[in-house]
Design a protein around this nucleic acid. Sequence first.
DNA 1: TTGGGTGCAAAGGCTTTGCATGTGA
DNA 2: TCACATGCAAAGCCTTTGCACCCAA
Lengths: 154, 154
Amino acid sequence: MPSSREQFKVLLRTNGLKITNQRIAILEVLSNRPGKHLTAEEIYEYVREEHPEIGLATVYRTILLLSELNLIDKLNLGDGYVRYEISAKRHEENSHHHHHLICLECGNIYAFQDDLLENLEAKIKDTLGFEVMDHEVKLYGHCKKCIDKKSEEI
Amino acid sequence: MPSSREQFKVLLRTNGLKITNQRIAILEVLSNRPGKHLTAEEIYEYVREEHPEIGLATVYRTILLLSELNLIDKLNLGDGYVRYEISAKRHEENSHHHHHLICLECGNIYAFQDDLLENLEAKIKDTLGFEVMDHEVKLYGHCKKCIDKKSEEI
DNA sequence: TTGGGTGCAAAGGCTTTGCATGTGA
DNA sequence: TCACATGCAAAGCCTTTGCACCCAA
């Protein structure tokens, strides 16, 4: 599999867009942290370590671009920040979307794969005539770590 | 089943909160539109038809209150607006959460019930030790109406 | 009477946009 | 060269907050 960096360059070129240091740097920040869900501000902070001159607006503009190119996925937890992660397709075999487990105590986000929804989507198509193209599943609860920690306290 | 209005009054009273016309009016706007997903601004407009003097801040404050009392559900489509609907529990028999089908063309939102996730949640508990408390499922696609409309155009 | 509730306007906080300058192709 | 990209600051936009007044209980 080509690195997301090379793939990104090709995508930019074929779309008549320019390859800039800022764009590469932002993609690398995300690529180097698969499974991490970073806010725009966090991406900005990481990129600044190497490129102190970058502006937050560029981060937002690049995020939008990466999103349109399907290189990153959005995650909205409803806390006022939109989070981004490198698209799972770059890192996992034949994975379409994955789902998220969000711990209500520590805030950690875990990913998991499941094909359960395929049946559901077929059912929806049959009964309602609604054709599902994409889905988003968020499960809120308590992660193993937090459960274990609590039982230790007793 | 007691009306959500009476239930609401009881909830307010037992929590030492006051029963005001504004609070009742906002709840009624939502109660009269089950399955509709209204933004704060939309709720504000509807309430103003009867109570022109109400302020948008009161709508936001009351929405928060209704949310904490579990009388309304939030829906975040990531378009910059948070939407609210009267809790399905008030209108459907033994329904926990329902899921949402969002049409990418007309923007209409359809609800559906499904217990498929119960299996999934049990599986997650067994394999990952993560205890799911609540979930949110959004399916994006094309609704029957829009599909039919398109095939007519051909 | 009186403390919670409301209306208004201002402030917050994330994100987008305008514009002059910079730069990859 | 030159159209696209960037940085900065200002503007947008939804939502929250401060404060004086109001009104259920």
